[in-house]
Design a protein around this nucleic acid. Structure first.
Lengths: 143, 143
DNA sequence: TTAAATGCAAATCGTTTGCGGGCCC
DNA sequence: GGGCCCGCAAACGATTTGCATTTAA
C-alpha cells in the first residue's frame, strides 16, 4: 500500500528517464520546499544536460499524479515538496523564509465542522501561518 | 476611527480621480471577490475611458495601503475585496467558484497557540477551505 | 520500433513599467 | 503650476508549448 516515487511512476506507466530520476532524487533530498529554479539548479549540479523546461514538465506531471505537492507561499514562484501520507500545514518564518511543518487535529476537525455548518463538504484546505521568531516581534517591523 | 475609502484616500493624500472613484465604487459594490479583469470590465461599463493599467495600478496602490485585500484562491489571477475591520477566512465552492466568508475564533486562537508552541509569534495567516455543496460530494468529481 | 520524453526557443499569461500628455489640489 | 495620474504599448517573470531529435521500453 505504500510505494516510493519510483514505484508510483512505474504503476502510472511513466518512463523513467535519467532526468526524472535526478529530479526525484532532488525533491526527496530537499526539505526546504524548493521552487522550480532551485530544483533545476540542484539537478543541474548532478547532471547539467537537464533543461529547465523538463523540470517544469516533470514537476507538473508529478504534481498532477499526487507524487509531489505544490505550494504558493509568499513569493511569486510556486514551491514543491514530496507528497506525504500524513497531512500537514505550514508555518512560514517571514524573517528567514524558513518553512516549518505542523499538524493539528483540532484545527482539522474545526474546518470540517465549519464547512458542514455552511452546508458544504470539505474537500481540501490550505492553512499557512506567517510568523516571526518570538522576541524579534516588532523590531525592524518595516513594511 | 472608522473611515470609508474616500476618506482614507484623503488621509493618505491620494488624488481622487474619476478613475479611482469608479474603481472604488466597483470594489465596494462587488461581493464576489473579483479579479482585475473583472473590475476592469465593471469599471469600463461605467466609463470606458479607463485603462486596465490604471486598474492594476490603483488596486495595487489600495492594497498596499490596506484599503483592499488581495487573495490568491484557486485560479491564476489574484482576486480582491474591500478590506474589512472584522477578519474573516474563506470557503471556496469548487463547483461554482462562489466564495463564502466565515469567522471562527477557536481556529484563530489555535493558530496563535501553534505558532507559539513552535517558538513563533503569529503575524498573519491564510486559511481557505475548498469544498462542495453537501450532497453533490462525489458525483461528477472530475478533478 | 515507436510512443513518449527531451532541449531549445518562441509563445503565453498575468502583471508592471517607461513615457509623453493630462488633470487634481 | 507642479506633481501625481492617466493611457498606451512595450517589458517582465514565471510557466507552457511546438517542433525536431533522442531515448526508454
Amino acid at each position: 500500500m505504500k510505494y516510493n516515487i519510483l514505484e508510483k511512476c512505474n504503476l502510472l506507466g511513466l518512463k523513467m528517464t535519467e532526468q526524472r530520476k535526478i529530479i526525484i532524487q532532488v525533491i526527496v533530498d530537499s526539505s526546504d520546499h524548493p521552487d522550480v529554479e532551485l530544483v533545476f539548479k540542484r539537478a543541474s549540479k548532478v547532471d547539467n544536460r537537464i533543461s529547465i523546461a523538463t523540470v517544469y514538465r516533470t514537476i507538473r506531471l508529478f504534481q498532477e499524479h499526487g507524487i509531489i505537492d505544490k505550494h504558493e507561499f509568499g513569493g511569486s514562484r510556486s514551491r514543491y515538496e514530496k507528497a506525504s501520507d500524513i497531512h500537514h500545514d505550514h508555518l512560514i518564518d517571514i524573517k528567514s523564509g524558513k518553512v516549518l511543518e505542523f499538524k493539528n487535529d483540532k484545527i482539522e476537525a474545526l474546518q470540517k465542522e465549519i464547512a458542514s455548518k455552511l452546508g458544504y463538504e470539505l474537500v481540501e484546505h490550505r492553512l499557512e501561518l506567517y510568523a516571526v521568531p518570538k522576541g524579534c516581534a516588532s523590531i525592524g517591523k518595516d513594511k
